[in-house]
Design a protein around this nucleic acid. Structure first.
Length: 1055
RNA sequence: GGGCCUGUAGCUCAGCCCGGUUAGAGCGCAGUCCUGAUAAGACUGAGGUCCCUGGUUCGAGUCCAGGCAGGCCCA
């Protein structure tokens, strides 16, 4: 016996129960131990999740993929590592801890104590790692949760040391300068990435116009100046050049007593009267020398200001002449490097002016604008000031305006690596395919990789820089110990983080001087990029590493990762192993809300993972995730989850519930011998054929990372199963008959139906278990676990393998034809307004071709029964009621005749339809426009069936005769009666299997029909006899009007 | 400015790789039916310049080129 199934399933509630059961019975552990001894390996390397906050629904999407493919391979018998990863070093963590402590700047941290601060960072990571682990379990993400790797681990950090040392040995590591966005308040640089995400804010700035007097003005225009424009007046202090676009048109204008140069298209920025004196190209200005705005400052001493050419100068704003301060602007710095312009860096790390700026020194960048205007005015260089609104980068932590500041940073050279990494990139299969193009494009454009950050909690860069100019890079903890000349004892036992690591000093390998580590920490993408080595024990057990590297696949959301994780993985595995880190990269887009808007906590449209899991259910989420085309954004919401429930989970559950209900009534035992395939009904063989086709395609699509096709195919199969197999089989389950297999009185057809449906459900749930682990487990527990063939859990099962001997292509085609014709028949009935309960005499059918015509005999019974019609007639027997049309079979004719197709098409329209049709039906060729066409090269379509209610679709036509004879009418009435009796049974609260006493009272017409159809009524309603003309007081009664006749029906449960 | 992606019904999308007869699904809307799976199910209807232009081809939603619009990345 099976456990009775609640037809109104509350899926989230069920999931909670399953989760508990898994836990109590250690199913995840048994699952992960299942293939311990297998020779087949499937290697997955987890992209570490940032353990800085709770997990959101968008993480659940990615984790569902990871779990799906893991489960699929587990069921296929592959040994795996099941290791989750947590990312937990870097500014992200620092920022949150600073918030907790109410800190606003680096000085707060230093005052608090770096050791205590770093310890809090580590604790926060551990705290959220625990939270995420618990959330992941609710998602049924099965990993070794007590064996997750951490990027903050010693092993991870020391493996990065090894990487950096390798880079150094190849001459790839260098210290350089760059201009970076910098927050003066937080006193740190921000990466471009941190600005791009949410850093730009609409801001009002001064738009300041300044005159740069030309030094070598000709005698005709003695007082000529360049007119420039800037929104950051403080940068004028460090001006070293002015840039023009050499192809743009410029003008010289006379105003008051002097002359100004600016772009012709920007004349509108002039104030007051002016007169254009001459026009010139930008190239004519290049090379001119001018007097800078702050030449009197000591820092400006010796700087020769000149005009340079720059293609980036545009006509959209300003004056078309751009002030260049290489020490205070990113693009300026790049241009300065190319043109050999001196670099003056005005600001320290708090945004204060440094020594060498005279009266500016010590002032903060935020408070100097007015003083700058005054100074310019006193020197006659001020032109005018306007207000200017634009989007400008701000610190995403504290909201301060950023400045651009020159800093010393450590870099890995990209040029020597560009080609090798590109080669490795092309060895990987990227899903979606365009991933490779994007990665290659990034690699082509990638600048040297800046790996340092001036913060506290992160990888300690193992670089020891000596004042002699040499620097040493340490490659391991062992090497550090060997080279330590001071502080090792103090450090020993601590993690290699600041401040502990910095007690250790070594001697410079060049001059022997004692040196300290540089104070920088590492870029966090080093942390995540090393994991294909660090997590596979690369340093201590190369054989183990070789067993699992390169990984079979990795997976992460693609926006951002081409330049982050994918990039760092590729770089590090190219340098260390000259190999791809993985064979497949499966990536997916972004999650949006139901309306396609970005999810934001502040907007109120974010969905918490727990809410989603509790309300919509994890299976509904996971099915939706799997259904999504990973290349496009996922619009996620409660509505779409409910759709999954209604469209997919409930139909599936209904089939299961149907099976269990009747299997229990008939005491079906799946452990008894199953009927031989030859003894099974055609319907059974058909659904098994469809099932095995499904197993093939699903397996293929999972092996090729196409989960979205899997869900489509399964949904289609369930449609067949529910709306054809079960519906067509219902009577086979209802009918009386015993299931004692093999006994003389056993009903082999009934047994065959039960066995087949059970087999189908078993295979189906195994097939879907990786996607929807809960509902499949629930069903498996009932359908399999307690029987001899069952295992403890569906997740300890093997993945189904298609039995090709059960695939019958002809059968599949036939049944699909039957479904097609039935659907069209229903359509024709619907158009005529005739209910299916009313029997009809004839169904006319026009098929597409002769072979389908031949099939008709085999599917006749199904179609007639489905449509409640007496006989089927091929339409060719009634050609007077249909208009035929000839069409060329283009896929056949096209390749064969090419240009001739046009002539054939035309000739077919003119041809005599009946004679051509007769000819091709007898199998002979036809001469059309001089071409000898075979029967299959011509298609015959029916347009309509006149006088009948018809339906046409794709070459098929179906029609019903709408004439209803007296006997058909009686039969229809009998069915109406049975229908009413069933309603009364149900209203009386009787069980499906209860037998009844039945009383029918009503008009003479009703009584006549009941009498005529006595046996039919008894059989359908499980009545022992029909008693006419009365009803009893102790029975349940209802009255109806059927076809204009009054009837009262009474039932009671018989003894 | 360069690279990549997307554009199909009111909405969300499939189909395109590998060209073929009348372009599909779900949601929504209007209606009908069925009901011994029933807080389900089936059917019908309205709704489409498959972004535009050109090319290749007997034939283009599908392939090619050039645009347009939106998105992402880089500069």
């Amino acid at each position: 016996m099976f456990e009775a199934v609640d037809s109104k399933m509350n899926f989230p509630e069920m999931e909670t129960g399953i989760l508990k059961w898994w836990n109590e019975n250690q199913i995840p552990d048994k699952y992960m131990a299942k293939n311990e001894d297998s020779d087949k390996r499937y290697s997955f390397i987890d992209g570490p999740i940032t353990a800085n906050n709770r997990m959101g629904v968008h993480h659940a999407w990615g984790r569902s993929y990871k779990d799906l493919f893991s489960r699929f391979r587990t069921m296929q018998g592959y040994k795996q590592r099941y290791q989750n990863g947590f990312d937990g070093q870097g500014l992200w963590i620092e920022v949150e801890v600073e918030k907790e402590l109410g800190f606003t700047s680096k000085t707060d941290i230093e005052g608090y104590g770096i050791d205590k601060f770093v310890t809090l960072c580590k604790e926060r990571v551990q705290r959220f790692a625990d939270v995420i682990s618990e959330q992941s379990k609710q998602l049924a993400y099965w990993m070794h949760w007590d064996n997750s790797y951490h990027t903050m681990s010693d092993e991870n950090n020391y493996t990065i040391w090894h990487f950096l040392k390798t880079c150094h040995e190849r001459g790839l590591l260098y210290e350089g300068t760059d201009v970076m966005p910098w927050c003066p308040r937080c006193s740190t640089g921000l990466s471009e990435h941190e600005i791009v995400t949410e850093g730009y804010v609409e801001t009002e700035h001064p738009g300041l116009f300044v005159k740069f007097p030309i030094l070598d003005s000709d005698s005709e225009t003695p007082e000529a100046s360049l007119l420039i424009w800037t929104t950051t007046p403080w940068t004028l202090s460090s001006n070293c050049a002015a840039a023009v676009n050499k192809d743009m048109d410029y003008v010289k204008v006379k105003q008051d007593h002097g002359y100004l140069y600016l772009a012709k298209s920007r004349i509108s920025s002039l104030a007051g009267d002016h007169e254009v004196v001459s026009e010139l190209k930008g190239s004519e200005l290049v090379g001119l020398n001018y007097e800078g705005p702050f030449d009197e400052l000591p820092a400006q001493e010796g700087v020769k200001h000149r005009v340079v050419a720059w293609d980036e100068v545009s006509e959209t704003e300003g004056t078309g002449i751009v002030h260049i301060a290489p020490g205070a602007g990113k693009e300026d710095f790049a241009l300065g490097k190319r043109e050999g312009i001196p670099t003056i860096a005005p600001l320290d790390d708090l945004g204060d002016f440094v020594e060498g700026f005279d009266w500016l020194t010590g002032l903060n960048v935020y408070e100097v604008n007015d003083k700058i205007y005054e100074s310019l005015k006193s020197k006659g260089k001020f032109y005018r000031l306007e207000r200017y609104k634009h989007r400008y980068p701000h610190c995403w932590r504290c909201g301060s305006e950023l400045v651009f500041r020159l800093v010393d940073e450590w870099f890995i050279k990209m040029d020597p690596l560009r080609e090798p990494i590109s080669r490795v990139t092309q060895n990987i299969r990227w899903v979606p395919e365009f991933g490779m193009k994007r990665e290659l494009d990034w690699l082509r454009n990638m600048d040297d990789w800046m790996i340092s950050k001036k913060r506290y909690y992160g990888l300690a860069l193992p670089i020891y820089k000596c004042s002699c100019g040499n620097f040493d890079v340490i490659g391991s903890e062992k090497e550090l110990e060997e080279r330590a000349v001071e502080g090792w004892d103090e450090f020993e036992g601590n993690s290699p983080h600041k401040p502990w690591i910095d007690s250790v000093k070594i001697n410079c390998s060049s001059c022997g001087e004692k040196v300290s580590r540089v104070s920088d920490v590492g870029n966090p993408w080093l942390d995540a990029g090393i994991v294909s080595f660090s997590t596979l024990n690369y340093r201590h057990d190369k054989n183990y590493w070789k067993d699992w590297f390169p990984a079979d696949w990795i997976s992460e959301s693609f926006p951002g990762q081409y330049r982050n994780w994918f990039y760092s993985l590729l770089t590090m595995s190219t340098v260390l192993a000259d190999s791809e880190p993985c064979k497949n990269i499966f990536s997916y887009a972004l999650m949006r809300d139901a309306n396609g808007e970005e999810m934001h906590k502040s907007k109120g449209n974010a969905i918490w993972f727990e809410d989603a899991a509790d309300k919509m259910g994890v299976d509904a989420m996971r099915w939706q995730f799997a259904s999504q085309n990973p290349a496009s954004n996922l619009n996620f919401g409660f509505g779409s989850a409910d759709e999954v429930r209604r469209q997919f989970l409930i139909p599936l559950w209904n089939v299961y519930s149907f099976f269990v209900t009747y299997a229990n009534i008939d005491k079906f035992d799946p452990d008894t011998q199953s009927p031989d395939m030859l003894d099974r009904a055609e319907l059974d063989r058909w659904i098994l054929s469809e099932l095995n086709i499904l197993v093939q395609t699903v397996t293929d699509n999972l092996e090729n990372f196409r989960p979205e096709r899997v869900t489509r195919e399964v949904e289609e199969f369930i449609e067949y199963l529910s709306n054809w197999y079960v519906r067509r089989s219902r009577r086979r389950f209802w009918k009386s008959g015993l299931l004692t297999g093999g006994a003389a009185d056993s009903d082999i057809d009934k047994l065959s139906a039960y066995t087949t449906l059970h087999e189908v459900l078993m295979t189906l749930i195994k097939l879907m278990a990786p996607v929807i682990p809960f509902v499949t487990e629930k069903m498996y527990q009932n359908l399999a676990s307690k029987f001899s063939f069952g295992r403890e859990s569906v997740h300890l099962e093997e993945y189904p393998i298609s039995d090709e001997s059960l695939i019958d292509q002809g059968l599949t085609e036939r049944v699909r034809l039957a479904m097609q014709l039935s659907s069209m028949g229903r359509s024709a009935r619907s158009k005529a307004g005739i209910k299916v309960r009313q029997p009809l005499q004839e169904l006319f059918v026009k098929t597409r071709n002769a072979s389908e015509l031949d099939m008709l005999g085999l599917i006749e019974d199904q179609v007639l029964d489905e449509l409640n019609i007496k006989e089927i007639k091929p339409v060719d027997d009634a050609s007077e009621i249909v208009t035929f049309r000839l069409q060329p079979n283009l896929p056949l004719l096209g390749p064969k005749y090419g240009r001739g197709v046009a002539a054939i098409r035309e000739a077919l329209e003119q041809a005599d339809v009946d004679s051509v049709r007769t000819a091709i039906e007898s199998g002979s060729t036809v001469d059309i426009a001089g071409f000898e066409l075979s029967p299959e090269e011509i298609l015959v379509n029916a347009d309509e069936l006149e006088g009948y209610s018809t339906s046409t679709d794709g070459g098929y036509a179906v029609g019903i005769s709408t004439e209803i004879s007296d006997s058909l009418k009686d039969e229809g009435l009998a069915r109406e009666l049975v229908h009413s009796i069933q309603n009364v049974r149900r209203a009386a609260g009787l069980e499906i299997s209860d037998h009844i006493d039945l009383f029918v009272n009503g008009s003479a017409e009703i009584l006549r029909v009941v009498g005529n159809f006595n046996d039919y009524v008894l059989q359908e309603t499980l009545a022992s006899e029909v008693i006419l003309g009365e009803s009893l007081d102790d029975s349940y009664s209802e009255s109806y009007e059927l076809e204009g006749e009054q009837v009262t029906i009474s039932v009671r449960k018989s003894d």
